[in-house]
């Protein structure tokens, strides 16, 4: 479980996040939604400690990240898997080497076991036959999926994925959503997904966090989301025609 307490973050004078309080539960998929530029990625980066919060703290299973020693942070991070919005694959390594990288650094496996594990992870994100390619030689959506494969290679306790679906076709999108769901159930992971994709929200979100105007504007479950009367949240989620139809259908019973 990850707890965010009174987290604020500004860059210079620019305030991005204000007094965020949230709890990402173990074995659940928590999704962070919000407009582009609302601070979702910044929030994720504060939670994993890439940005130091201006104030507030983040607790991993009750232990404050901000008070951890460097070595403790490294230990903890070996249990974190993260997909960056930009994928952040190592471009001097092949697809296969990228996925094997965390294993090479930390796992007690021989070469063959590492390969098998990497192959397995790549299969789960539906990447086949691209092992020897470099990140620059595959599409953006494929990079995303390789990024996910790398993030899950070590069976992380905490999984962060920043826009796993952007750039993916609807079919592959669902595959990725299901994968995130399965991993969360199977390994009881604390999963945090950042997304704009309402399909993904309605598909797998256990709890939803809506960021707007620098604040955590709303949180709740999928059912609560559809029934919410928060005007801003409604404006956000019902912007797409599909969601409007859902709402309409609900009204008509």
């Amino acid at each position: 479980m990850i707890e965010v307490r009174n987290l604020c973050k500004s860059f210079g004078d620019v305030e991005v996040l204000q007094d965020i309080n949230a709890c990402f539960a173990k074995g659940k998929v928590s999704q962070i939604i919000g407009k582009s530029g609302s601070g979702k990625s910044v929030l994720a980066k504060c939670v994993i400690g890439l940005y130091a919060p201006t104030s507030g703290e983040v607790l991993y299973d009750g232990k404050s990240f901000q008070s951890m020693e460097k070595e403790e942070v490294r230990q903890l991070r070996q249990e974190i898997g993260m997909l960056f919005q930009s994928s952040a694959l190592f471009d001097s390594l092949t697809v296969l080497e990228n996925v094997m990288f965390p294993l090479r650094m930390f796992a007690t496996m021989n070469e063959r076991q590492m390969r098998e594990r990497a192959d397995f992870c790549l299969k789960r994100v539906k990447i086949e036959g691209a092992d020897a390619k470099y990140p620059a030689e595959i599409s953006g959506g494929m990079q995303k999926r390789v990024g996910i494969a790398r993030a899950i290679a070590m069976n992380p306790k905490y999984l962060f994925v920043d826009e796993p679906n952007s750039g993916l076709d609807p079919q592959t999108s669902i595959v990725i959503d299901n994968l995130i769901q399965e991993i969360t159930d199977e390994f009881n992971t604390t999963t945090v997904v950042i997304t704009h994709d309402m399909n993904s929200v309605m598909g797998i979100a256990d709890e939803i966090f809506f960021i707007s105007q620098h604040r955590l504007m709303w949180k709740g479950t999928r059912e609560e989301l559809l029934r919410s009367d928060n005007a801003e949240l409604n404006a956000f989620i019902f912007a797409g025609s599909l969601m409007r139809q859902v709402k309409q259908a609900m009204k008509e019973g």
Partner: peptide
């Protein structure tokens, strides 16, 4: 590597 978040990716894996 820094501007393309690859160093962040290393850090987040717990790599020095």
């Amino acid at each position: 590597m820094r501007v393309r978040e690859q160093i962040d990716a290393l850090d987040i894996m717990g790599v020095n």
